[in-house]
Each structure stands twice: as structure tokens, then as C-alpha cells.
Design a protein around this nucleic acid. Sequence first.
DNA 1: GAAGGTCCTG
DNA 2: CAGGACCTTC
Length: 586
Amino acid sequence: MDPNSILLSPQTRTCSHLAEPCMEGERSPSPQELGRDSPFPWNQVPSSSLADPTWFGNEHVQAKRARVETIIRGMCLSPGPPVPGNARARASLCCLEKARERKRKQSLPMQQGTLKPGPARAGGNRKRGPWVREQLHLLKQQLRHLQAHILQAAEPRDAAQGPGGADKGKGPLSVKQTNGCGSSPWAMDGGHHQGSSKDLSRAEKHRVSEPRFLPSGAQALLEVLRKELTGAVSQAVDSVLQKMLLDPPGHLAQLCRSFQGLVPEGKGEPSPPGGGVYKGPFALAALPRGVQPEAGVPLGNLPLAKPPDSPRYPISPRVISKSYEGPPANRPLTMPSHVQENQILSHLLGPGPNGHWSGGPPQDSSSQSHPSSESAPRPWGASKLRPSVLSQQQCPLPFTSTRLESLPLLPSVKMEQGGLQALSEALPFSSEGLNPGHLKKAKLMFFFTRYPSSNLLKAYFPDVQFNRCITSQMIKWFSNFREFYYIQMEKYARQAISDGVTNPKMLVVLRDSELFRALNMHYNKGNDFEVPDCFLEIASLTLQEFFRAVSAGKDSDPSWKKPIYKIISKLDSDIPEILKSSSYSQ
DNA sequence: GAAGGTCCTG
DNA sequence: CAGGACCTTC
């Protein structure tokens, strides 16, 4: 029996659908992306899931749970050292980048504008991190102590009103707070301090009302304690702040990370009912030894590119050939988690069901679309993301909810708030050029777009101040990404040919294929992002195109790749808004 | 001529 | 990944 004949017929439609941009995509393409219709209407997929009340409810409960857990974690977390592996990776990346920066600076000293201080900073950073943590830890302890005293002196009545109080920074302001957090590495401070100021005002009220209920001795004690506390706190805050001021950028972010305590693993995230599993008969059969393709299952708990065993074939030919089950709409369940997240956000945010996909690079979306995209509080959607993905959204939680217990006592912090905010705006985070975080984010974006326009880039790197140099550097990045991508494709296409594959449609890139692992290793080292299915589809298509070209002998033509490039350049998908968040750049 | 691509090299 | 040469497009 010829497997080809069996497997191919159903997919011809989708493949042609792939090759020629279809008309169903209604996202209005902007002028510069003429012809960039996405053949995969990802933006339409999740609505079906949203429509499913079961799924929605389940998500909601999960999210609540995750949030509570986060809060609890934040509360009992002792500021421990970050996961060594991550730290090391980050550090080495950092060093590499720094060395490169230095090199770059030598060659074009004028272009980069204000740049990082210098290499000395890495060491200092590492030394100071623990110091700051220690200080803050001590501070926290002191606060607990003092507060205990005060509470003793005062009445239990106060305790009842205290932390348990339900207000958690809701109301109109909270949107702004989260927004800050979403779009700026400093946001955690914004959130923090805004939270505290809120509580401060509450504290002030308490202050006014309290003494009336206290015996005079207790009042005196209270006053003394207050003064002591205020002094100590403002001193400590001052010193911490000073350290930070002297510190290189990134410190706060680092601090943030250490506070948030590097949530160990994604929670067992609920996949949508039936989600994440290729339902296609062939697809299931395709999997070696029942290894389910974790398509659509959030990566939180699954090592994506490390299947127990890898097939001998680079691109599991034959077996997989039939993963095109039909138009994407027919298999909504393979929708990537972040896409869900995004949809959910859009849904929650109201304006337009699919309105938040960056349907093409808007002229100035960097300023325009933020408020709605990241700004929204992600009460539960956030729980769908991995820690690393989330780093930012989780930042504020430990602070705002870590208890307000210490907050009512901090009038002086209020003073610092403005300073810190100014600081956050002044510090080079947004003007420093590109850092390893940006690179990483760019790589993730590559999963969605191979040929981003500079406008798109600007929109998705709001924390980068673009100039000609930065722009071309980033464009160069994508050029390099493509280069690697196409090289891999060609390599595996040739290998498939030499392996005797005759039908290009047999070539489908699945998550357990070697090719996928190579790509994932390159663009998603660390596996902290779930490679979207759309990328797999594009990769499969690219592979097939290379296969066709090579097997047709077109590679004798020096520019034989160009038609392929052209095809691929039309297949960019929309990038989830979530990637706009600068949390990816940290 | 600027912008953006590819190819090649290190 | 960056730099540079070279090409194409607008």
C-alpha cells in the first residue's frame, strides 16, 4: 500500500490554502504588508473556546487558584537566591552581550547614544543583589516586630481591619498600575508604591482615629514607636534607594525577580477540554509510542523540545504527514496557550472580540495600543503563562498583597514614590539599546513573523528607543534568524530527499522532530515559550518548498531560494499582544 | 539614496 | 550574532 495515496488526498485543500493566501483573513492588512494575509486565522480560533462555558469556568477557577497561590507564595517567601541555572545563563548571556556591546561601541561610538556604564557592573550587581535583599529582609522583619508591638499596644480591633481588608488596589487606578507593570520594567515599583500609598492613606486615617481609643500610656508608646519606625524605615529606604540609584539598570528588575521568588514551575495548567492534542487520526497514529504531541498544551509543565525519544527521521516523515486536518478553524484545540490568553484578554477587555491582535503594524501602535493590551489587569489569564513569561505580571502581586501589614506604617515611603518613578523614567531601561532580553523576545517573535517591518518592531518593543542603528540591528537579527531557519530547512529537506522521501507533503514538522528541536533550541532556548502551532505549519511548508525545489533540481539556479523566501514572507502571522509586554525584554 | 534583503565571513 | 559587500525596491 502506498501511504501517500491514502494520506494525501484530504490535505490537498489545506495545502493549497497554505500556499496561496486565502481570502478569509479579514484583518485589514496595512499598506506595508500587502499580501501578508495569514493563511492561519489564529485570531479567530479561540473564540470557540471562549464560547465554551465549561472551559471558561474552569479557566477562571484555575486562575483564581493560581493567583491565591501566588499571593501565598509572596507572603511566605523568603528572598532566596534565584535558580542557579537561570542566573548563570542570564549572567553569561549578559557578559557576552556586554563584550559585544563594547566591541560595538568601539566601532560606532556615536550611534548608540547613552550606553551602559561598563563591564564592571556585572560583578557589582551580583554582589549587591544579596545585599539589597538582605536589607529588605531585615527591614521586613523590623516592620513585623514593630507592628506587632503597635498592635499589642493598640487594640485587636485594628487587626481585624487590617490586612484582611478586601481592598486590593482595585478601582480605576489598578488598571494603570498593571499597565505600568506591563509596559515597563519598573512597573513593579509603580505598582508597589501605588499600592502602598493607597494603604498609606488608609493608615493615615487609622492614625487619626486610633488615639482616641488608646490609653495615654499606650498612646505615648505608639508615638515613640511610630517615630522610631518612620525614621528607621525612611533611612533604610533611603539607603536602598541610593544603592539602586548607583546601580546599573536591571537591578530593580532583578530585585523584582528575586522577590517574586521565581515561581518554580508552571502550575498544572488546565488545558482546554481536549486541548493540546492533535485529534487527527493520522496525527495520533503518527506519534512514536503514544507520545502525545503537546501541541497547545501550555508549556508550563512540559519540556517542550525534549521528547523522551526522538525519531530517527529528522522530520518524522510519512507518519505525520497528515497534520493538516483541515482549515485551522477545524482544529481549534491546538491553539497555543498564549493565543488563548490573548483572546481572553481581548474578551475581557471588551472592545471587539478580535480587536487586540496587532493586525499589521499600526503607525504608532507603540503608544496607542498599550493601554488596552497590557494594561488590563489579568486577574486570571495570567495564570496561564509560565513564570518566565509572566515575570512581570507577577511582580506586583507579592508586593501589593504581601501584606499590607507593613504598609500602614510607611509615611516616608510616600516621599520616595515620586523619586522612584522619576528614576524609573530616567534610567536607561528605555534608551539603552538592545539587551539580551530584547534578543530573546525577538526570537520568540520570529515564531510568528519572519519578516517584521520596522513599524512592527517598534510596536513590539515599546521599551526600546529606536534610532536608525537600533532598527537596523534588530532587522539584522531577524535576517540572522531567517538565515538560520532557511539553512535548517534546506538541510533537512536535503536529508529527507536522501532518505528517500518522495512526497513533499510527507514532510511535516512536529514537536518531536529533530528539526523542531533545532529550531526550538535556537529561538527558544530554555523552552520558556510554547512554540505556536502556526510556526510548525510554516516550518512544514518551508520544508516542503525546499524539498520541492531541491528535488526539482532548482538549486542549480543561484537564486533558487528567492521564490521560497517570497512565499514564506507572506505567511507571517499576527503576534500575540502579550509579546508586546516588556516583561519579555528583561 | 535610504531601507531592507541575502550571502559570506569571522 | 555582527559587519560588510552587494543587490533590489521604492
